[in-house]
Amino acid sequence: MSETVVTMLTNAFSVLVFPGLLFVMIVGLLLAGIDRKVLARMQKRKGPPVLQPFYDFFKLMGKETIIPDAANRRVFLAAPIIGFVSLVVMVVLIPIGGYTPFGITFNADLIVMLYLLTIPAVALIIGGSSSGSPYAGIGISREMVTMMAYELPLVIVLLTVALKVGGGSFCFSLGEISAWQETNGALITHWELIPAAIAFLFVIPAEVGTQPFDVAEAETEICEGPLVEYTGAPLAMFKLNTAIKMFVMTALFTVLFFGNAVATEYLALNALIVVAISAGITVLSMTLAHAVCARLKIEHLFKFYWTVVTALAAISLVLVWCL
C-alpha cells in the first residue's frame, strides 16, 4: 500500500515539478529570455533583462481577458490550455539524460512525438480560428503552411535517426536511441548524420515560430495573426507555449543527437547539461537566424523547407541507407 503511495507521489512529482510543469515553465521562459538577451547583444544593444519573459508572463496574467463577440467562447479559452498541457506531457515523455519517470514501457516513440508536436500548433490554429477575426484567418493559414513546410524535413530526419540506430531492425523508441549513443558515441559525431542535424536546426525556429520564420504571427502585417484577439491570461498561456516549445524542440535535438553520450550518473547534473545544451542550440538555431535574416514570405518559406532543408535531410537518409 505504502509502495503505491510512494509511486503515486513520485509520479505526481515528475508530472508537476520535474521534468514536468514547474521545471519546464521556468526553463522555457529562461530560454526565451536568453534568446532575447543574446539577440540584443548581437545587435549591440543592452537588451532586456534575462527575466523579461517572466515579467511579460505575469503582466499578461494580470490583464483583463476580453472574449470577442464573434468568438466561440469555449474553444477560445480551451485552446491555449490544451496546447500547454500537451507540451508539458511531451516533456515528461522525453528522456532527459536517460531519465524516464514512467519506466521504459511508457517511453516516447518518434512518431508519437511527431504527432504530439502538432497539437500545440493545432491548438493555436483552432484558437485563432475560433476568435472570428480575418487577421487570424490569414494567420492560421500561414501557420498551417509553415507546419506543412517543416513537417517533411522533420519526418525525414526522424526516420534517418531511426534507421541509423536500428540498423536493419525496427527502432522508433527515443529511449533506445538515447541509450544507443552511450555505447556508440553521440550521433552528432557520426559524419553522415551532420546534414540531418543541420536540417533539424532549421526546423526548430519554424516549429517554434521565431523571427525569420514567424510569418504566422507577423505583428507588423497581420497584427499577430492567430493571437490578434487574445488578451490577458490566454495570451500569457500562448506566450508560455512558445517558450516551452523552444525547450521541447531543443531537448528533442539533444536526445536525438547527443543522447546518453552526455549523461552522467546524477539526475540534477543531467538536467543542467540538457538545459545548457538547449540554450546553446537556441542561440545557434534561433537567435542567430533572427539576428541575420528578415522575415520570409510564406511561399519562400515553403520553398526553402521543401528544397534546401529537405535536401539536407534526404542526403543523410540516403547516406545512412547506403552505408
Binding site: 502538432t118 472570428g132 480575418p134 506543412m148 513537417e151
Partner: peptide, 24 residues
C-alpha cells in the same frame, strides 16, 4: 504517408475555418 497526414490536417483546418469558425 506521414506528409499526407499533415496535409489532411491542413485541409480540415480549412474546413473548420470556412464553415464553423470565422465570421458568420
Amino acid at each position: 504517408a506521414l506528409v499526407v497526414s499533415v496535409m489532411t490536417l491542413a485541409s480540415f483546418i480549412k474546413v473548420t475555418q470556412a464553415v464553423f469558425f470565422g465570421q458568420l
